[in-house]
Computed example of a mutant assay.
Amino acid sequence: MGKKDLSEEDIKARYITPAVTNVGWDLKKQIRLEYAFTAGRIILRGNITARGKKKRADYVLFYKNNLPLAIIEAKDNNHPVGAGLQQAIEYAKYCRMRILGIS
């Protein structure tokens, strides 16, 4: 199986998680996988309310508890690098605002 055939989950398991842990990040204390940082958009239809899909980052690296330092957004090899980069930038902006209490 070539790299083009790997799913996003395969990429994370084979490349990203080992790379992050090999440089010293603690998987149990500093790394959160599939980290949800919103409860989902509130959707109103008349008197009925519902929640939209949660926003979640593939990885959030924490310097200390409740102090996120970096976001890693994985993509399979069928997407350009820019797709994951733009998504991670948007997530980082949102997370920073939440930390600062701006949201």
Rank of each mutant, 00 (worst) to 15 (best):
32 R>V: 00
29 K>E: 14
43 I>R: 12
68 P>K: 09
98 R>Y: 06
90 E>W: 06
64 K>V: 04
103 S>C: 10
62 F>D: 05
28 K>A: 13
70 A>K: 06
83 A>M: 08
95 C>K: 12
53 K>T: 13
95 C>Q: 13
46 G>C: 09
101 G>L: 02
14 R>S: 09
98 R>V: 11
100 L>G: 04
82 G>L: 12
40 G>E: 04
62 F>Q: 11
43 I>W: 03
43 I>K: 09
31 I>D: 02
79 H>N: 07
99 I>M: 07
39 A>Y: 08
20 V>I: 15
12 K>H: 00
59 Y>E: 07
55 K>W: 10
1 M>Y: 09
55 K>N: 14
1 M>Q: 09
6 L>C: 10
44 L>G: 00
92 A>Q: 10
79 H>Q: 11
1 M>G: 11
24 G>S: 07
34 E>F: 10
14 R>Y: 13
64 K>T: 08
68 P>M: 02
75 K>P: 01
82 G>A: 12
61 L>P: 06
41 R>N: 12
57 A>W: 01
35 Y>D: 15
6 L>F: 09
53 K>M: 05
33 L>M: 11
81 V>L: 14
26 D>I: 04
94 Y>W: 05
32 R>P: 00
52 G>Q: 01
57 A>Q: 01
44 L>V: 14
41 R>K: 15
34 E>M: 09
53 K>Q: 14
91 Y>A: 10
7 S>F: 04
15 Y>I: 04
15 Y>G: 00
99 I>Q: 15
65 N>P: 01
43 I>D: 08
8 E>P: 10
48 I>D: 05
42 I>L: 12
96 R>Y: 04
11 I>N: 06
22 N>S: 14
82 G>I: 11
80 P>K: 09
22 N>W: 06
80 P>I: 07
13 A>W: 00
80 P>L: 09
39 A>E: 15
60 V>R: 08
90 E>G: 15
40 G>V: 03
77 N>G: 02
34 E>Y: 06
84 G>W: 08
101 G>K: 09
92 A>E: 10
89 I>W: 05
25 W>M: 03
34 E>P: 08
50 A>C: 07
80 P>S: 07
2 G>R: 14
101 G>A: 07
11 I>P: 00
78 N>W: 02
53 K>L: 07
62 F>V: 04
74 A>F: 04
59 Y>K: 08
54 K>F: 03
60 V>Y: 02
69 L>G: 09
51 R>M: 07
56 R>H: 07
7 S>W: 04
24 G>T: 09
89 I>Q: 08
102 I>F: 12
73 E>S: 00
40 G>K: 05
4 K>V: 05
53 K>E: 15
52 G>S: 06
76 D>C: 09
